[in-house]
Design a protein around this nucleic acid. Sequence first.
DNA 1: ATGTCC
Length: 477
Amino acid sequence: MLEGIERINEVECEVPVGYVPGMRVSARFFLSEDLEESLEEGAVHQLANVATLPGIVRHALAMPDIHSGYGFPIGGVAAFREETGIISPGGVGYDINCGVRLLATPLRVEDLTQMRALVEELFRTVPTGVGAESRMRLSAQGLEEMLVEGVPWAVREGYGIEADAVHCEENGQMQDADAVPVSKRARKRGMPQAGTLGSGNHFLEVQVIDKVFDPKVAAVYGLEEGQVCCMIHCGSRGLGHQVCTDHLRVLESATRKYEIAIPDRQLACAPIHSPEGEAYFGAMAAAANYAWVNRQVITHEVRKVFSRLFGIEYEEMPLVYDVAHNVAKREEHDIDGRRETLYVHRKGATRAFGPGRLEVPADYRAVGQPVIIPGSMGSSSYVLHGTDTAMERTFGSTCHGAGRVMSRTKAKKSMPGKEVREALMERGIYVRATSDASIAEEAPAAYKESDKVVDTVTRARLSLPVVRLRPLGVIKG
DNA sequence: ATGTCC
C-alpha cells in the first residue's frame, strides 16, 4: 500500500487526516489487495483533497474503481451537510448523469440466430459517435419541458410507457431541475442530440444472462438464466458537458467570493444554498433529466427494432432499472442516530439503496434497488442489489464499473482496433463501431477487470450480486 | 466524457 495509507481490512483502506493539509475528516476507499497495483497516487491525493471541503460528513469515500478525474477522483462519493456544506461540479463530472439501464426481453439466447443483422439494424437506428444527431425533431419548448420533467415528459410524448419512469432513479425526474440556469449554448448543443449514444465507453449491448447468483432477487427483477437483455450506457451529451463548463467558471469566482479555501482549483464549489450553488444544482438536475430522456428515447428505438425483427410487443421489453453514475442528490441519511439532509455527490459511483427505502420502486423495495454495473467492451456486466451495509457505510453507494487503467492514446498505440474486433469476434461477440480506432481505445486491456471491482464491493457488502451478463453484440461510438 | 481548442 502507498506510504501514509493504512489498510483497515482486506477490502478497505484509510487515508488519515494530515495526508494533505486541511483535511476535516479522514478519507476511506474500498480496494482489495489484488487491485492495489492499479491504485494511482494522484487519485488518492484527490480523494484526500475532497476531505478538506466544508461540511463534509464522515469521510471522503471512494469505490474500488477509483481513478484520477477532474478535481474529485472518479469512483468518489462525498456527502455534505445542507447548512454548512458545498456543491461542486468536480464532484459530479462533465458527463452529468452518465448512467446505465437494462432492458429485459422475452427472448432466449437460442432465439438470436442472426446476431449480425440485429446489431447492424441497431447501429443504423441509434445515432452513434461524437457529434451524432438525432432524427427526433425537438422544439425549444419541448427541450424546456424535457429538462424540467424528465422521463414522464418522454412517456407523454410517446417514447415509453408509464412503468419506465417508475424504474428510473428519481422516477427519471429530478425535483430540483431548473432550466433557467441552462445556458443558450447548452440548449443549442442539446437540441439535436436527444436519443443519441455518443462515444468513448458509451455503448448499447445485446447480452445474455449467463449466471444467476441470487435466484430470488433475480425473479423479483424479472431476470433468469439464458434470457437476452439489452444494456444502454450513455449520458447527457453536449448539453451536460456545457452545463458543467458554464457553471465551473461561475463557481471558480464563487469559491473566492465565499472565501472557501480549496487545495486545487478544480474543486471549485459554492455553499449549497448560495445563488451560485443553487443555479448549478438546478442546471445539473436539468441535465440529469436530459440524460434520462436520452436513454429513454434510445430505449424506444431499441424496442421498435426488436419488435420488427422478432415480432415481440413493446411491453414485452420492460425496463428493469436505470441508474445514474455522475450526479449530486439531496438525500436523507441517518448520521449518528439523527436523520439529516445531505447533498451526496457520486462521481463514477452508483446509488445502492437497501431494502425498505421509499426511493426504491415498490416492486423492488423488499430486496433493495438494482445496481447495474457495465463491463468494459467484451467483458461481463453485473446486476447487484443495494444493501443496509451501503446505507450505513457509504451513504447508500457502490462502484460504477471497470475503471480505465490505460489512456486512450496509449490504448490506440498498443493494439490495432481491427485486431481487437477480430479477437472479440472469435469469442462470439460481434462489435459494430464508427471506427476501428474507437474500438482500440476501448479494448478490454485498457480497463481494470470488472470482476475484481465487483468482488471488492461484494466482500464489503456494499452491494450483492444478482446476475452476470455476457455480451453478444456491441454498438459503440 | 466532449462540436476531443472559442
